[in-house]
Design a protein around this nucleic acid. Structure first.
Lengths: 198, 198
DNA sequence: TAATTAATAAAACGATCGGTCAGTTTATTA
DNA sequence: TAATAAACTGACCGATCGTTTTATTAATTA
């Protein structure tokens, strides 16, 4: 045995970090391994030593990004008390994440042909916890009588989830970065209060 | 001069129609010209006779799809009166469109590198009318005292626009087709009434 | 009917794609 | 220090990419 140094793990994370940036900017299909080699300054051979395919590299970046997002969220979510406060905090998180929304590349990836069912399932399971954050906050709000609705918690969670992710996907339609924080906050305001007169 | 028959125009529309389906399913980058040739059963030479590049073909499909959507909408929008009714009708349109949302490929396309600024501007101008539909309904609702809000019309339009497009983008997270119509309706309910207790 | 040309087809182009592989480097240990 | 193997390199592979070219078909008119 020799060189069990774990230097490789560092390289692997470096590749994934850089690849994430490219996937976010250009999507899955439009990001080539050659570009990843150029941007990471790691040779192709080395990239393929750590990841057996482009697909596996992509899945790894999504998984890693998702995990670290969840971890960060859970660390901060306890610092506020009411469900209402949690919603505003969540919106703030999405707004700050807006420039690097890896999740918006997932639908594009899922549209491809040759994805095995097992991989599709894996992706869905990967995104589930993010959705669950919405679900649990809303459930908590209803339990504590902060919120009232004749809709199911599932529907409400899905609606708000769509609003926040939708805002990051359609970002190119004007709006500079400063206004985005306010916009996300306003989205929560509307979600809570509506705009109907009565 | 000879053969000014206009048969070519039929072929051009046929190509665009079929290409639209592929772009919707797989996105811009992942759809190859070879697939388009196979699916349209039109030779590459003929495709390139009508469209000078893949990019131009894509732009043409987006433009065409958008125009026909707008036309259809304007034809039906007059059949309801209040802004509230118009919002529910709009949601219904989005729900029925959900399986073929060409617009969700636009963000991916916009992320590419080599797009000229003029083309980017063209795309934004292409999508503007769709956004304006939201804007005008909400403006009308506020003018007629149907809606009340301390937000700007722009913000409100953008929030609802994000909600509806977001729901089509994230469709892979469960939910079968039947439930979608109800979900879109519920989204309008929430937009109008909120879920806060008071 | 001969000339004209819009429209279509098919083969081929160079470039780039994701991926492989034979070989080199380097930290470790026996 | 010689042997070992994890880690890495860069040239190279066949396949596929978007696009071009050359040739053919068929509807029109002079």
């Amino acid at each position: 045995m020799a060189r069990p140094v774990g230097q490789g793990e560092k390289t692997k994370k470096h590749i994934a970090e850089k690849a994430k940036v490219l996937f976010e900017q250009k999507g899955y299909a439009a990001t080539s391994m050659e570009e990843i080699r150029e941007f990471t300054e790691i040779s192709k051979g080395s990239i393929y030593y750590h990841f057996k395919s482009k697909e596996e590299l992509f899945l790894y970046t999504v998984e890693t990004a998702n995990k670290s997002w969840m971890q960060e969220w859970e660390a901060q979510a306890n610092q506020v008390i009411t469900a209402t406060e949690k919603l505003y905090l969540l919106a703030q998180y999405y707004a700050s994440d807006m420039q690097n929304p890896l999740s918006k590349t997932v639908p594009e990836y899922m549209g491809m042909e040759n994805i095995e069912d097992m991989v599709k399932e894996k992706i869905i399971n990967l995104l589930q916890p993010e959705y669950d954050v919405f679900y649990q906050i809303i459930e908590e709000g209803i339990r504590d009588k902060e919120f009232v609705s004749n809709k199911t918690v599932d529907d409400l969670a899905y609606i708000l989830y769509s609003t926040l992710t939708g805002m990051s996907v359609t970002q190119f339609l004007g709006y500079d970065e400063e206004k985005f924080y306010l916009l996300y906050e306003n989205a929560i305001d509307v979600f809570l209060n509506g705009i109907s007169k009565k």
